Computed example of a mutant assay.
Amino acid sequence: MNETLNFDFCNMTIYDHYVIVVVNEGVIVSTEHNNTLIKITETYFPNKPFVYITHRIHSYSVNPEVYSKTAQIKNLIGLVVVSKNYQAKINAKIEKMFFKKPFEIFSELDDAKAWAEDLVAEK
């Protein structure tokens, strides 16, 4: 499976074991945005484990409340931030404190995909 969905705040590509999200420039990811993302993952991954990969191409921010709600998705088994930007990686390290499941930070998307596949294979 490989399907791309476009929203006013992001683009989301669905794969068999993970979803890759590219949030638009300047967005402040709120709980409302997160609810949209949750509904999509419930549709495409109703009873199977998956990993959420955020590919941080653009500059945006995340309301930390989003992570506690996202962590409650039972079949979400991990989260990955992909960025080459130093500040985005620092922000991700802070965000990691709010997320109580496996959370990794990579510079390359291929590394994130491989980690996601490995994590799903372990489950």
Rank of each mutant, 00 (worst) to 15 (best):
K48Y: 05
E117D: 15
A112Q: 02
M12F: 07
N47Y: 11
I14S: 12
E122I: 10
I90W: 06
L109W: 06
D118E: 13
N35A: 15
E95H: 11
E3H: 12
T41A: 06
I77S: 10
F98N: 09
L79D: 00
D16N: 12
I73W: 00
I57R: 15
V80I: 14
Y18H: 14
N11I: 04
G26D: 10
I105C: 05
E95F: 04
K113N: 03
A71S: 15
M12T: 15
I105G: 01
S83D: 02
T4M: 14
L79H: 09
G26H: 07
A114Q: 13
Q72G: 00
T13H: 04
P102E: 10
P46V: 13
V21H: 03
H33P: 02
F9M: 10
V81I: 15
E32M: 05
L109Q: 13
Y15G: 01
E65T: 09
N63H: 14
I77Y: 05
V62S: 08
V66P: 06
V23Y: 07
V80K: 02
V21I: 15
L79R: 03
V66F: 04
K39N: 15
T31D: 05
K69L: 13
A121R: 15
S61K: 12
A71G: 09
T54Q: 11
V80W: 00
E42C: 06
A92R: 02
Y67H: 14
L5H: 02
Y86V: 13
Y86N: 06
T43L: 11
A112M: 07
E104G: 04
H17E: 12
E42P: 02
M97N: 15
L37A: 08
K93H: 11
K69Y: 08
N63L: 08
E65M: 07
V66L: 08
K84M: 09
P102Q: 05
S30Y: 04
I53P: 01
Y44G: 00
T70K: 10
P49S: 11
K39R: 15
S59W: 09
I90S: 02
T70H: 01
E117F: 05
T31V: 14
Q87T: 12
V27N: 00
S30C: 09
L37N: 08
T4Y: 04
K101W: 05
T43R: 11
R56W: 06
K69P: 00
T31M: 09
S83A: 12
T31G: 00
E117H: 08
L79T: 00
T41M: 14
V23L: 01
V27W: 01
V51S: 06
W115I: 08
L76K: 03
T31S: 12
H17S: 10
F103V: 10
S30K: 09
N24G: 10
A92S: 11
M12E: 10
S30E: 06
A114L: 15
V29S: 08
F45T: 02
R56S: 08
H55V: 04
I38P: 00
V62E: 08
D16P: 00
H17K: 15
Y15V: 01
L76G: 00
S61F: 11
I40R: 07
E32Y: 05
I77M: 07
N91T: 11
S30L: 07
L37V: 09
L79C: 01
W115S: 10
T4H: 06
